[in-house]
Simulated scan of single mutants.
Amino acid sequence: MFPNIKENAIFIADSHFNEKRSQLLTFLKKLKSKEIKTEQLFLMGDMFDFISGESKYFIKRNKKVISLINELSQNIEMIYLEGNHDYNLKNLFPNVKVYKRETHPIFMNYQNQEVALSHGDIFVNDKFYDVYCKFIRNHIFLLFMNTIDFKNYISKKIYYGLLGKNICHNIKSFKDIVSKRVKHYDAKIIIEGHFHQGKEYIIHEKRYKNIQSLTCSNEYVVLENNKFIGKSL
């Protein structure tokens, strides 16, 4: 039996948090103050512009957000689907249910409907990308990178390179992309992040929801009475 998605669960995705994109920190502070309320929170991946459990530099840079997530997870059920910018997180978030990319999709129930959830960077039909994903998540490799990261030179190059990246874009052929993706999912409802589009479709008798980027839309999503409702931050 799959676990349940609770009524009024909140979904956020692709905040790509950094010093220029503070929406995730704002959201978590409102959750702490109870201006925003939920019993269950889904973090759909790429919550940070980059972080791994091995990266001392990025852990230090994101200390406030990490601390808030850990504090809130004492009282809120949190499910974190690792993305392509955030991985190897279990040790950082001991009270959060963290799911690595290779376990996606995960399955849950909502109103007697089977739901498949993933960050969204799976089923890409690219063997090189799958190999690349395994390599950059390798614990030994990441520890080695820490040892040669003198004065945080490598980490800073990554950080400031990502800082100037435009993450907000419209994919004109997105419905065609979704039509191909839903064939890989054996569930009535499919929820993904990754694409930053915030669109919803019924395709092949399956309901597909892409959770919008928290940064691009300034919205989080509440699942209420079988509807995905975007709410302004």
Rank of each mutant, 00 (worst) to 15 (best):
H169S: 15
E192S: 07
K60S: 03
Y132E: 03
K172A: 09
F141R: 15
E192F: 02
L117G: 07
G230V: 08
S33H: 06
R61A: 07
I140M: 08
D46A: 01
P105Y: 06
C133R: 06
S213W: 04
Y87D: 03
L162N: 13
D86W: 04
D46F: 08
N91V: 03
Y87Q: 01
S22L: 15
F128E: 11
S73E: 13
Y110E: 04
K60P: 00
K157Y: 00
F150C: 00
L68Y: 04
C168L: 13
D121Q: 05
L81M: 07
K56W: 11
I76G: 05
N109I: 05
T215W: 07
I10R: 07
Y80Q: 01
G53R: 09
K6V: 14
V65L: 14
G120S: 07
L43F: 04
M47C: 01
F228L: 10
D86A: 00
N62F: 10
Y87I: 06
T103D: 01
D126E: 13
K37W: 00
H169L: 14
I229H: 14
N70L: 08
K20T: 08
E82I: 12
K199T: 13
F128N: 15
R101E: 08
V222Q: 09
N138K: 09
H85S: 05
L89W: 01
V115W: 05
K227H: 15
Q113K: 15
K6C: 11
S52V: 10
I167R: 13
F141I: 15
S33Y: 04
F123E: 09
G230W: 12
E219W: 08
E19L: 10
